[in-house]
Simulated scan of single mutants.
Amino acid sequence: MNPLLLFEKWFSEEKELSNLKLPAACCLSTSGLDGYPNSRFVSLKEIKKESFVITGPLDSRKGREIENHSKAALSFWWTSTERQIRIQGDVSVIPKSEAEIYFKQRNRDSKIVSAIFEQGQEILDISYMQKLFKEKKAALGNKEVEQPNSWGGIYIKPIRIEFMEFKKSRLHERKLFEQASSGWKMTIIQP
């Protein structure tokens, strides 16, 4: 069984039952530059080339962490279906041409934020940030927002995926898929 197909099935079932505004939200974990794990919520764009696609500024903390240690983890928790999926994998940068497509799909305000701010860097105060945003938005008018050079995306090619279905009995069903030389190997693990 291909765990990526199972992921897509579970994701589809969650979207059918859920009224979540961001059903593709997931927790991306990386190895911090200071040795501490680092996690943040991001949005899954799609599964492509047998990998999970995440986008954003590559010069951000997460981008620098991935450049330093090209392994990451994703965690999904879906409340409607009471399912959790944990993914560990190897990271590579998506081609610039693909990043351009994802950037064009973003809403205008998100594009403007990406164009004028350096994610995670210090700023004087919130009102200054809001003023800067309003000024840039007004200056742009109806012009297209250019994609910053630092904005791109990553593939996370899984080596391990765990699916967990929560049960009222507390006998949660867990299936662990691991990459082996002959393809995916599945084991059932205890709750």
Results as ranks from 00 to 15, higher is better:
87 I>T: 00
184 W>A: 15
16 E>R: 12
60 S>F: 05
138 A>F: 13
186 M>N: 06
136 K>M: 06
1 M>D: 14
42 V>L: 00
187 T>F: 09
76 F>V: 04
26 C>K: 04
145 V>N: 02
134 K>D: 15
109 D>E: 13
38 N>Q: 09
18 S>F: 10
21 K>C: 01
43 S>A: 09
104 K>P: 00
32 G>T: 05
61 R>N: 08
27 C>K: 06
29 S>L: 02
81 T>Y: 08
40 R>L: 01
87 I>Q: 01
140 L>V: 01
56 G>Q: 02
114 S>V: 02
8 E>W: 09
142 N>M: 08
85 I>M: 02
95 P>T: 10
138 A>Q: 14
119 Q>R: 07
52 F>V: 02
69 H>R: 12
31 S>G: 00
66 I>T: 03
21 K>H: 09
2 N>D: 14
163 F>N: 12
141 G>Q: 11
104 K>L: 14
187 T>D: 10
74 L>H: 06
166 F>K: 01
104 K>Y: 04
10 W>K: 12
10 W>D: 03
70 S>K: 13
106 R>M: 07
169 S>F: 06
175 K>F: 06
6 L>S: 06
172 H>I: 09
188 I>S: 13
129 M>Y: 15
124 L>F: 15
186 M>W: 03
52 F>A: 08
176 L>D: 01
175 K>R: 15
180 A>C: 11
13 E>N: 05
148 P>A: 12
51 S>F: 13
55 T>H: 06
72 A>N: 04
122 E>R: 10
56 G>K: 08
99 A>D: 06
166 F>P: 10
85 I>G: 04
163 F>P: 04
111 K>A: 12
98 E>S: 10
100 E>T: 13
57 P>L: 04
183 G>Q: 07
80 S>K: 08
155 Y>E: 02
90 D>I: 03
174 R>W: 03
22 L>C: 08
86 R>H: 05
1 M>P: 00
121 Q>H: 11
114 S>I: 11
55 T>S: 03
189 I>P: 00
177 F>G: 02
162 E>C: 02
36 Y>H: 04
67 E>F: 04
147 Q>H: 03
20 L>K: 11
149 N>Y: 03
148 P>Y: 10
147 Q>I: 14
112 I>G: 00
13 E>R: 12
74 L>F: 03
61 R>L: 04
174 R>P: 01
137 K>G: 04
15 K>L: 07
56 G>H: 02
135 E>W: 11
106 R>T: 05
159 I>Q: 05
154 I>P: 00
180 A>M: 12
69 H>T: 09
80 S>L: 03
88 Q>T: 15
30 T>Y: 02
190 Q>N: 12
50 E>V: 09
145 V>T: 08
139 A>F: 09
